[in-house]
Nucleic acid binder design. Structure first.
Lengths: 210, 210
DNA sequence: GATATATCGGCAAATTCTTGCCTACCAACA
DNA sequence: TGTTGGTAGGCAAGAATTTGCCGATATATC
C-alpha cells in the first residue's frame, strides 16, 4: 500500500501539443509522472485507466471546455484536485472554476516553476498516507457521530499540515493559527505522533529534496 | 428575532459613496435590508452591531483592501458568505478571493439585477451549495485556520444530515448522536437555518433550476 | 377549544478546551 | 562545556461548550 505512496501522477490536459509536451517534460524532469491528454474525451479515458492524483487542464479547448471536463471528472473522482490554466481568462471563468473546487487558476503562459510548486503543494495538502482516515469524515460515514467525524477531520487536517511542513511544528502552528499547547494536546488526544509521521514519509521517500 | 425569518440583511461596503447609495437603494426596493459602510473599519464595526447575513464588498478600497477586510470579518463570523466586486480585477485577485471562500465575484460596474440575484441566491442556497462549502474544508483551504476548517466541516455534516432527513431534527439528533440543545446552538452559530434549507430543497424540485 | 408532537430559546451547572508560564529534553554547534 | 533553537509536558486560571430543565410557539388532530 505504501509502496508508491509519494509517487505523484498528474493528468495534463491541453489541446496545444507543444505546450503539452513542454510542460510534461518539465514535470517529469522534476520527478513527477505525467499522463497526457490532448482532448477532453481522451482525458476522461486516461482518468479511468490511471491512478491520477491531480488534474491540470486548460480551460479553453475546442471539443468541450475545461469546466465541462472538470464536472465530468468529478463524477468519478469527486475530490480530485484540479488546477486550471488559461490565457485571456475572464473573471466569470475563474469564478466558475473556483466554484467547481479548483485548487488554483494559473494564467497562460504558465510559468513552469509555478506549475511545479502548485502540483507539489497539492500533493502535500490533499494526499499522503491519509486516504484511510479520509473515508471516515468524507462522504460515506453516515453511521458516525458528529463528534467522531469532526475529530477524524481534525486529525486529518493536522496530519496533512504536519506532512506539508515536514514535521516542522512551528510552521503548523502558524498555518493552522493555533496555540502550541493546544496543538500538542490535540495531537496527543488524537494519537498523532510527529516522529512516526515523518519517519514514514521519509521511508517511503528514499529520495528527498529538502 | 424570529419575526424576520426570511428577512435578509446585507452589509454593503464600498468607498464610492454614489455607488454605495445606488446599490443600497436598489436592494432596499427589492425588500432586502442593507447596512452601509464606506470603509473597512466602519464595516467591521457594523458587523458587530447588526445581524448581518451576507457581506458585499468592493475589493479595492483606500484604507485596506477587501481581502484583508474579509479576513478580519471572518474572525468574528467564520463562515459568513462574502461577495466581492471590483473593476479591473486580475486573475490572482479573483483566485485569492475565492480561496478565501467568496461566494461570488462580480465585475464593476455591478449590474443591479445581477447583484440582487446573487444576494438572493445566497439566501436561497443558504451560504452556497454543499459542494461549495466542501471547498473550504477540503483541499483548497491552506489559508484557513484549523478552527475555521473544522467549523466548515461541522456545518457541512449537519446540513447534509438535515437534508438527508428532510429537516427532521429528531432524526438528525439520533444520527449524529448529539444533544438537541447542542445541535440548536451549533446551528445558530454556524448560521444553519432549518426552514430555509428545506424550503430551498423543496423549491428546487418543481421550480426551475436557476 | 383541547391535546399531542416537534421545534426552539433562556438559564445555570458541569465539563471540557484553551492558553500562558515554567520546566525539561534533545540536537547542533561554538 | 555552554549556548541556542525547536519541541514536549505539568499545572492552573480563564473561556467556551455541553447538557438538563423549564417554558414558549407552531402545527396538526381529536
Amino acid at each position: 500500500m505504501t509502496t508508491e505512496a509519494d509517487h505523484l501522477q498528474v493528468l495534463l490536459v491541453d489541446d496545444d501539443l507543444d505546450v503539452l509536451a513542454a510542460n510534461a517534460r518539465f514535470l517529469r524532469v522534476n520527478e513527477i509522472s505525467v499522463v497526457l491528454a490532448e482532448s477532453v474525451s481522451t482525458a476522461l479515458q486516461r482518468l479511468t485507466e490511471n491512478e491520477i492524483d491531480v488534474i491540470v487542464t486548460d480551460l479553453r479547448m475546442p471539443e468541450a471546455n475545461g469546466l465541462a471536463f472538470a464536472e465530468q471528472a468529478r463524477a468519478s473522482r469527486p475530490l480530485i484536485p484540479i488546477v486550471f490554466f488559461s490565457g485571456f481568462a475572464q473573471v466569470p471563468d475563474v469564478v466558475a472554476a473556483m466554484k467547481l473546487g479548483a485548487v488554483e487558476f494559473l494564467e497562460k503562459p504558465v510559468d513552469p516553476d509555478e506549475l511545479l510548486r502548485v502540483v507539489r503543494s497539492v500533493r502535500r495538502t490533499h494526499y499522503g498516507t491519509l486516504a484511510n482516515q479520509r473515508q471516515v469524515f468524507d462522504g460515506g460515514g453516515e453511521s458516525f457521530s458528529l463528534k467522531m467525524r469532526v475529530l477524524a477531520y481534525e486529525k486529518y487536517v493536522i496530519e496533512s499540515s504536519l506532512l506539508q511542513h515536514n514535521g516542522h511544528v512551528a510552521d503548523v502552528l502558524n498555518a493552522l493559527q493555533i496555540n502550541r499547547r493546544t496543538l500538542n494536546d490535540k495531537m496527543s488526544k488524537l494519537g498523532i505522533k510527529r516522529d512516526t509521521l515523518i519517519e514514514q514519509r521519509a521511508g517511503s521517500n528514499n529520495e528527498q529534496e529538502s
